[in-house]
Design a protein around this nucleic acid. Structure first.
Lengths: 334, 334
DNA sequence: AAATCTTGTGTTATCGATAACTCAAAATTA
DNA sequence: TAATTTTGAGTTATCGATAACACAAGATTT
């Protein structure tokens, strides 16, 4: 590997002079500068970022930790984060926690040893608390995305889960539905709690008494709990509409319904949180509360970079982004 | 930041002894080991990967360069790559080229300065040649994914584009279609060329004379060339089916058709290469040649890691993965 | 008891770059 | 012309870790 010393020797100067040429610092005569530049080109020299970072204590690396890169919400978020990072000269170190606290912890350890400048952290849930605390203890700047973690005071970019849920449920009520089921994420995730609250609020505001036998707490990632849905459908007074608390749950619900010979919206209306990204545009079909995923990533990254570069005040900031109700064809008036 | 010297001082030993404890190398008395361990825990010591890498000349970083993280094919591929990387103790440095050679070049420069151990490279197209050569010149191991680059001799994981295209077109022919259009990627991408060949072969094998006025060369990334599609539909003898060369093009085609009041499959049959990932499962609708995207990432990463760790022979390897024809409801017998 | 080996640990140099300081020669000022 | 300032470099120490070598004290062999 070509180092600064190779350049120095061949150009007949000291390493420091080469360093000065590279960084355009200090005083260098035009003649020397040209000679060094020429040798650098000839040898295809590229500065070693490791050595640089060791001195400067800055890696220009930002870790993006998300729960599922396969989910279009996070994919679009990642895109926003990457664009903003690139613009500011940061590279992205990528990690996928799979909504699994242990995997998340592994990655936090990796992150700490890598000495990244900051972390854009979409936590798996409330128990991410310890992992975030670990970052705090080591004074790594971070911004929390999508889910609020009780007990962690940090910059955070959230969606308005309560309002989004309310809008979806009210849309169903407007169409005449009264028995509305909620297939929710795990209760140790803030968004799932808020969507549950929004769901209940919408029902009560419209004079419908919430019925907890219509509420399933499953988990955002996979819809494997077929039996729970089955029980829901076997009720004396079964739901006529289902609110899935995120896009992946909606996929599972619809697939299960299909397996049972039930069609959406003919036999069951379905709505959900989060849209399906570009891929979903082939056949826009589900009525959703669409969150501005790209903005989550972009704004989160901007907050983070401000923090890293010391341009942010000490107080932690909180951005709440609205979701948009997009009515499509997965709901039908009762 | 806590360093090995802080630990050494507090434990009353030399830095080297601490290093030995960390790495379980050399001879250390049980007593000293315990003492050092205790101090390490107390101070929450985490080794600095930068310093380590500088000495060992190994970063345990692998760069994943793809063209579009928003495309479920690459997303699933990334997932496969990440899982394989994590298993082998590598972290992933992420980059998105947007099918843009300049952006790709920028990232290659970043990659080189970061001293990654290897690159998993999904090239934008034939002109990625220079960027790959750049890696070769600096002796960075890499594996090429999805697209073959003329003039570059390297490990590569490909899909069988020709056969996949043939299968899709033959499926359409079986249904009675004779006027089949191809909306293709740019001709400087190997998969687009092969899909074009497969398309022609299928037509000829079935006694249909290929008609180049039915073939559009657009670009995989965006479907913005509305006028081209318009002309296609205005032909005296317009197509009754469209083969979109990838999933994103299919989305564009279907949206455009919809804007013109044309429905799939009633007014036009549509098939495409690549499936839509988990999100597409809500409403499986398009007939596709589905590529094993996860395997692309996983196998590519395995090849790469073998190369990095010197377990691979010098000869470059070439893996060709078949695609699977999945017939759904976007095609209709004529 | 002397010679040899083993054990446990320390010292020094190094990875590639840069910050901080130094200093001779040239240019400018008094 | 002597004193001072500016210019264009070079030297040394440092970032945090590890490889290679050195070495004293204790254990083992002859």
């Amino acid at each position: 590997m070509i180092t600064i010393y190779d350049i120095a020797e061949k150009a007949g100067v000291s390493a420091m002079t080469v360093s000065r040429v590279i960084n355009n610092t200090g005083r260098i005569s035009e003649e020397t500068r040209k000679r060094v530049r020429k040798v650098m080109d000839e040898l295809h020299y590229i500065p070693n970022a490791l050595a640089r970072s060791l001195v400067s204590q800055k890696t220009n690396l930002i870790s993006l930790l998300i729960t599922d890169i396969t989910n279009p919400f996070y994919t679009t978020l990642a895109r926003g984060a990457e664009d903003a990072a690139k613009k500011a000269g940061y590279r992205l170190l990528f990690a996928n926690s799979d909504e699994d606290y242990e995997k998340e912890k592994d990655y936090v350890d990796m992150i700490l040893s890598t000495r990244v400048d900051g972390v854009l952290f979409a936590p798996a849930g409330d128990h991410s608390h310890d992992n975030l605390l670990q970052l705090q203890k080591h004074q790594i700047p971070f911004v929390v995305l999508d889910r609020e973690i009780p007990g962690i005071d940090a910059d955070v970019v959230l969606g308005d889960s309560k309002e989004g849920a309310r809008n979806l449920v009210e849309h169903l009520i407007t169409q005449g539905h009264q028995r509305i089921a909620l297939v929710n994420g795990s209760q140790d995730v803030s968004t799932a709690r808020l969507r549950y609250i929004g769901y209940n609020e919408a029902l009560q505001l419209n004079g419908i008494t919430p019925d907890d036998s219509l509420v399933l707490h499953i988990g955002y990632r996979d819809f494997h709990d077929e039996t729970a849905l089955h029980e829901l459908l076997q009720l004396d007074d079964p739901p006529t509409a289902i609110f899935a608390a995120n896009n992946m749950l909606a996929v599972g619900v619809i697939q299960s319904l299909r397996l049972r010979g039930l069609q959406v919206p003919r036999d069951m209306s379905v709505v959900c949180f989060d849209d399906f990204g570009p891929a979903g545009a082939i056949n826009p079909f589900l009525t959703v509360a669409s969150q501005p995923a790209y903005q989550f990533g972009k704004l989160g990254m901007q907050l983070l970079i401000e923090r890293i570069e010391g341009e942010a005040s000490d107080a932690s900031r909180r951005i709440m982004l609205p979701s948009e109700l997009i009515v499509r064809s997965s709901t039908q008036p009762l």
